[in-house]
Simulated assay, not measured.
Amino acid sequence: MSDDFVIVDPEAVPPESFQTCETAVRKLTEPLGCTELRVNQVLVEPGEVTTPHTHDGQEEVFSAVTDGQIAIDGDVHDVPAGALVRVHPDTIRNLCNHTEERHVWLAFGAPPVGSVENFGEYVVEE
């Protein structure tokens, strides 16, 4: 693998479930060789909702590959395909799907704190 660039087809990475919910995620950070940010593809099926959370010290940007929905502090926002959503580390966020179609997102977090296996600074309110 070259240190200069890497091309990864997310479809080639097996999906797993998040630790806190059933939503499928393809962890792309390692296949891409990223060291300064985390990258995941999140597949949100109709009726699914990811766990509301914050990240101490990690800003996130979500890219809607398809039309999607994101809840910010409990308010659901429709996001058109191709749009980006930036979320402050202290803001409660979660992806949701109240439609009949699968939603596909790319999630970028920097700096790279925690992971899908070890949430580290991932904060879930009780």
Rank of each mutant, 00 (worst) to 15 (best):
S63W: 09
P15T: 03
E125A: 13
E45D: 14
A12S: 15
V116L: 14
A12N: 14
A81C: 10
V79C: 05
P80Q: 05
R102D: 11
E45V: 07
V49H: 02
E117N: 09
R93W: 07
Q58K: 02
E45H: 12
N94G: 08
P15R: 02
V104L: 12
N40M: 08
F62V: 04
G109V: 02
P112Y: 09
D56T: 04
R86Y: 13
P52G: 06
T23H: 01
T66A: 05
Q58M: 12
I92A: 09
D73N: 13
R38C: 06
I72V: 15
L84H: 08
N40A: 11
A107R: 01
V8T: 02
L106Q: 10
R102M: 14
P112K: 10
D73P: 03
H98W: 09
T20R: 10
A107S: 14
H55V: 05
I92R: 04
P14L: 15
L37A: 10
E125N: 01
A64H: 01
E48S: 14
V113E: 04
F18H: 06
N94Q: 10
P80S: 04
F108N: 00
I7L: 10
N40G: 05
V123F: 05
L37S: 06
P89R: 03
H88T: 10
D75T: 15
G47V: 09
Q19K: 14
R26G: 04
R93E: 11
V8H: 03
V42F: 02
T99L: 12
N97G: 14
Q58G: 00
V39M: 12
V85E: 00
K27Y: 11
T50A: 10
L32K: 07
T50Q: 05
G74A: 10
T99M: 13
D78K: 13
F119S: 12
D75L: 11
